[in-house]
């Protein structure tokens, strides 16, 4: 059975399913209760499950994650919401020094199934701290798993899979994709949590990215097709670990790779992808792996974001450079 939902609605349904499936699953964060979250992702869940399952936190990100850790020690599976990407840093110690390392500190004898939901990314014209892409910080930290859906269907399934993970998962939700609608298959998940996926077949060049960039890569591939260039598009889906298999196989076929990301490029996921593909598919490459990123600056005032963020045109510019080699 398929339904047409926005990603926001799909996440809401996925959270609903996770809460229904396991009485130990909790939903907490700022404004996730009666308000339903600032993006309405948790709409109506507090009314449905009551204040012992879905509840508002005081305003403190370290407190949200730190108490979620304690709840996990007690046997709960908390899903915490960090309201916006740029607000996650007060929780950085609890996420990276505590949550990420606690299983190792316990020599593997304790699990910390905590999900941290983070609306992230730009293209929404918001004020400072509301448009960032901080996923590389967390992908860099051992002990965490990091994922980002690009479609309503993936959002619906990946949030449930993240809740089932016995390890902590940082779940990045591309907020510019909250409102476009898509088909959701409520019966069978398309893929497991930590797999990447070819979302458009092609032969001349591979584009890889995650989250909101997937739609832009598909748009770029569409334009390129009208010019006779066949582009394969890979949706990363999981940022840690990265499922390199489909990507390396794609590059072995096309010989060219462009990585697209909203985050600044320096020491980014794109850097890791470029390095790993160079190691694993060196002889297949006809051109260096190119990265399309935001600039290595703070996110500028929103009226400048169209100059700062990569879009389909910038992706096509990199495609042309790669093809010219």
């Amino acid at each position: 059975m398929t339904t047409t939902w926005t990603m926001s609605r799909a996440l809401n349904a996925g959270l609903d399913a996770a809460l229904a499936a396991d009485g130990k699953v909790l939903l907490l964060g700022e404004d996730v209760g009666p308000l339903g979250g600032v993006f309405r992702v948790t709409d109506s869940l507090a009314a449905k499950y009551g204040p012992s399952r879905v509840f508002d936190s005081p305003l403190g990100e370290a407190g949200i994650v730190g108490t979620a850790i304690g709840l996990a020690m007690r046997g709960y599976r908390p899903i915490c919401e960090i309201q916006f990407d740029g607000f996650i840093y007060p929780a950085f110690n609890q996420i990276t020094s505590q949550l990420a390392k606690l299983t190792a500190r316990h020599e593997g004898k304790a699990s910390f199934p905590v999900v941290i939901r983070v609306p992230y990314g730009g293209h929404v014209g918001a004020v400072e701290h509301h448009q960032e892409s901080p996923e590389a910080y967390f992908a860099h930290t051992a002990g965490l798993r990091v994922v980002s859906p690009s479609t309503p269907n993936d959002a619906y399934w990946m949030i449930q899979q993240a809740v089932q993970s016995n390890d902590p998962v940082v779940f990045f939700e591309p907020k510019s994709r909250y409102w476009p609608k898509g088909e959701v298959d409520e019966e069978s998940p398309a893929a497991t949590l930590h797999t990447s996926r070819v979302v458009r077949g092609g032969t001349d060049l591979t584009l890889v990215g995650h989250g909101a960039m997937v739609a832009m890569m598909l748009q770029a591939a569409e334009v390129a097709a009208t010019e006779g260039t066949s582009i394969e598009v890979v949706d990363l889906r999981s940022l840690s670990p990265i499922d390199f298999g489909p990507l390396v196989r794609s590059v072995e076929k096309t010989g060219r790779l462009v990585v697209a990301q909203e985050a600044p490029g320096f020491a980014s996921l794109g850097s890791e992808i470029a390095a790993t593909v160079a190691e694993r598919a060196f002889y297949a490459l006809h051109a260096p792996v190119l990265r399309v990123s935001s600039f290595d600056t703070p996110f500028p005032p929103a009226k400048l974001e169209s100059l700062y963020l990569p879009d389909a045109d910038r992706i096509l510019e990199a495609v042309d450079r790669a093809l010219d080699y």
């Binding site: 730190g66 108490t67 304690g70 996990a72």
Partner: peptide, 15 residues
């Protein structure tokens, strides 16, 4: 850092 873990754990006891 452990003060928050204790508090979360105690929230769980209450739940």
């Amino acid at each position: 850092a452990q003060t928050l873990h204790a508090t979360g754990y105690a929230m769980g006891v209450a739940l």
